[in-house]
C-alpha cells in the first residue's frame, strides 16, 4: 500500500448495500494509508459486511491466494469484495476472485520515488483517481498501452495489442472480466472519462 485516500464517501457507502467481503492491506502502511477513515467506515457499517481480513502486502499473489481460498465461503456469500489497498492489491484480488465484483475502496495517490516493494504482474500508476471500479478490477492505464479510458481502440489482433504480440489487449481483458461478473453493460453506462494529470505531476499542483 502506498499513499491512499478513501474514495468518495457516497460511492463507497453504496458498496456496503451489497454485503461486501473486505480485504485490508497493511503492507506499506508506514508510507501512509487512510487508516482512520477506513476504520470509521468499517465501524459505521459493521452490520453490513459479510467478512473482513487484514493482510500485509496483498500485492503478493501467492500469499493473497491462500486467504482468498481460506475465506472462500464468506466471499461467495458477499455481493462484492471491497479492497482497501493500492491499485496493485485491488488488481491481485480481482484476479483471484474473478467471478466476483471487486471494488477499490481507495484512490492511490502519486508518491515520488516510491513504487512498492517488489515486482508484480500488475501495475499502478498512482493516478489518484482509481478507475478499477469501472473496469472490473483491471487497470486501463497500465493494461492498455495507450491508457485508454473509454474502451478498446480497435488495434488488437487475436487478443494481442498492436504494440507487441506479447501483450494482451487490456480492454479485451476488461471486457471479458466484466462479462464474467455480468457487468459488461457498465462499459456502456460509464460516463466519458477524462483523466486529471495534475495528480501525477511531481509537486501535485492540484
Amino acid at each position: 500500500m502506498l499513499i491512499t485516500k478513501l474514495k468518495d464517501k457516497e460511492e463507497i457507502i453504496s458498496f456496503f448495500d451489497l454485503q461486501p467481503f473486505i480485504f485490508r492491506c497493511s503492507g506499506c502502511e508506514e508510507v501512509y494509508s487512510a487508516e482512520e477513515d477506513i476504520d470509521k467506515l468499517i465501524e459505521d457499517n459493521k452490520d453490513r459486511i459479510s467478512g473482513i481480513v487484514r493482510l500485509d502486502y496483498l500485492c503478493r499473489e501467492e500469499f493473497s491466494k491462500v486467504y482468498v481460498e481460506k475465506y472462500s465461503s464468506e466471499i461467495e456469500r458477499a455481493g462484492c469484495v471491497i479492497v482497501f489497498s493500492c491499485g496493485v492489491g485491488v488488481q491481485v484480488i480481482a484476479k483471484l476472485c474473478e467471478r466476483k465484483r471487486v471494488l477499490a475502496g481507495c484512490d492511490t495517490c502519486y508518491l515520488n520515488g516510491f513504487q512498492g516493494l517488489s515486482t508484480q504482474n500488475f501495475d499502478c500508476q498512482q493516478c489518484g483517481e482509481c478507475y478499477l471500479n469501472y473496469t472490473g478490477g483491471i487497470c486501463p492505464l497500465t493494461a492498455c498501452s495507450k491508457g485508454l479510458l473509454n474502451g478498446p481502440c480497435g488495434g488488437a489482433k487475436n487478443g494481442k495489442c498492436e504494440v507487441s504480440p506479447e501483450m494482451d489487449c487490456g480492454w479485451e481483458l476488461i471486457y471479458k472480466r466484466l462479462k464474467k461478473i455480468g457487468k459488461e453493460e457498465m462499459l456502456k453506462k460509464n460516463k466519458v472519462l477524462v483523466r486529471d494529470y495534475r495528480r501525477t505531476i511531481p509537486g501535485n499542483p492540484e
Partner: peptide
C-alpha cells in the same frame, strides 16, 4: 472485430 461486442458498445458511446 473479434470480439465484436466491445466495438459495438464503444460505437454506442
Amino acid at each position: 472485430s473479434d470480439p465484436l461486442e466491445p466495438q459495438i458498445i464503444k460505437m454506442e458511446k
